[in-house]
Simulated scan of single mutants.
Amino acid sequence: MSSARTTPTAEVLHYSAFAADPSGGNPAGVVLDASALDDDAMIAVAAGLGYSESAFLTPGPDPDDSRSFTLRFFSPKAEVDFCGHATVATAVALGERFGTGRFDLHTPAGRVPVTVREENGALKATLTSVPPRVDEADPDDVAEALAALGWKAGELDSALPPKIAFAGVRHLVLAAANRQRLADLDYDFDRLLALMRRLDLTTLQLVWRETPTVFHARDPFPVGGVVEDPATGAAAAAFGAYARHLRLVPEDAQLTIHQGHDMGRPSLLEVALLPGEASIRVSGTAIPL
């Protein structure tokens, strides 16, 4: 059973998503019944928890469908249209209470179906993203991002060009040429925050390619008031679209993304591309805290 914290108006559950151990993954608060909370109360709960995002459920648009919910996400600073790790945490919490199977989650970014199954004695959730897209990144914006990061253009992997990828929210994808460049992350928080607000970015998806289908990632998240996200399901979905757009991988590729290791919170995100299906699937476990 998961631990819970009681506020005057809501019970908050605590999970770490994309890890099988509480010392890893990305923590999220989950409120399974947020009907009594207004926007100010939800952001107050999120700010009090201090997690990168927390999830708040209310009944879905179909009152006769007990597996349909409206899902909103709040960082400690503001509402976020979509959050992958909080979606996985929410799906596992729902699976614990209502059993495995499919749930329909209606988010500000659109409808996100999730399925929950038991695997090796633990619950694993798979989300199906909204239709993604990949846009060109302005060279001047890329230069400003590199300046804020303290990176040089020559430290990028020329085979993985900068793009803006979307699968619910926008991410600037920058690929490091080597693992050490990715490991050495010490950026100008305010400068990067200003750029991300101007471009409506949720994170930077900084990646290094270990093999054709295995990647390492780090995600600065200053717009959420967080220096770095240890596991970013929304960015993983967007990166799946990026990899397909650039034809880096086959149409039916299964990608593995390692994130959080440099923070001491190792996370594992599984990304599936399916032929003929625009949406990207992201899978992971979540463990109660």
Results as ranks from 00 to 15, higher is better:
Asp33Asn: 12
Asp104Arg: 15
Ala86Arg: 02
Ala17Val: 05
Pro27Cys: 15
Tyr51Glu: 10
Asp104Gln: 15
Cys83Asn: 07
Arg102Ile: 12
Ser52Ile: 00
Thr87Met: 12
Asp81Leu: 09
Pro63Trp: 10
Thr6Met: 14
Tyr15Asp: 13
Ser75Thr: 15
Thr70Val: 14
Ser52Phe: 01
Phe98Ile: 08
Arg72Ser: 03
Ile43Trp: 00
Asp81Gln: 10
Ser35Phe: 03
Ser23Cys: 13
Asp65Ser: 11
Gly101Ala: 12
Asp62Thr: 14
Asp39His: 08
Pro22Ser: 06
Phe73Pro: 01
Asp104Ser: 15
Gly101Asp: 05
Leu71Met: 05
Asn26Gly: 07
Arg102Lys: 10
Ala55Asn: 01
Leu71Pro: 00
Leu13Gln: 12
Lys77Trp: 12
Thr87Ser: 13
Arg72Trp: 05
Phe73Cys: 03
Ser52Cys: 11
Leu94Gln: 04
Asp39Gly: 09
Thr9Val: 04
Ala89Met: 10
Thr7Tyr: 09
Met42Val: 13
Phe98Pro: 00
Phe82Cys: 00
Phe74Asn: 05
Ala93Val: 11
Gly25Ala: 09
Thr9Ala: 08
Asp21Ile: 09
Phe18Glu: 07
Thr7Pro: 06
Thr87Phe: 09
Gly84Ile: 02
Ser66Gly: 05
Ser75Cys: 09
Thr9Asp: 01
Thr9Cys: 03
Pro61Ala: 15
Arg67Met: 11
Ala41Cys: 10
Leu37Ser: 03
Leu71His: 03
Val45Thr: 09
Gly84Arg: 02
Pro61Gln: 12
Phe74Val: 04
Arg72His: 06
Pro63Met: 14
Pro63Cys: 12
Gly60Phe: 11
Ser23Pro: 03
Glu79Met: 12
Ala44Leu: 06
Glu79Asp: 07
Ser66Thr: 14
Asn26Lys: 06
Asp38Pro: 06
Pro61Ser: 15
Thr90Val: 07
Gly29Pro: 08
Asp21Trp: 02
Ala17Thr: 00
Ser35His: 07
Pro61Phe: 14
Asp81Ala: 15
Val92Glu: 00
Ala89Pro: 11
Gly101Phe: 06
Ala91Phe: 08
Glu96Phe: 04
Ala86Phe: 02
Asp65Pro: 07
Val45Asn: 10
Ala36Ile: 10
Leu32Ile: 14
Pro22Trp: 04
Ser52Trp: 01
Pro22Met: 06
Thr58Ser: 10
Phe98Gln: 15
Met42Asp: 08
Glu53Gln: 10
Phe18Pro: 02
Thr90Pro: 00
Pro8Phe: 14
Gly95His: 08
Ala20Glu: 09
Ser68Ala: 13
Arg97His: 13
Gly48His: 06
Gly60Tyr: 08
Glu79Tyr: 05
Tyr51Gln: 10
Pro63Ile: 13
Ala28Lys: 00
Ala20Arg: 08
Ala28Thr: 04
Gly60Leu: 07
Asp62Pro: 10
Tyr51Pro: 00
Asp40Cys: 07
Asp104Met: 15
Gly60Met: 06
Phe69Met: 03
Arg72Leu: 03
Ala34Tyr: 00
Ile43Ser: 06
Ala17Ile: 04
Tyr51Gly: 07
Ala55Arg: 00
Thr70Lys: 08
Asp64Lys: 14
Met42Glu: 13
Val88Ile: 15
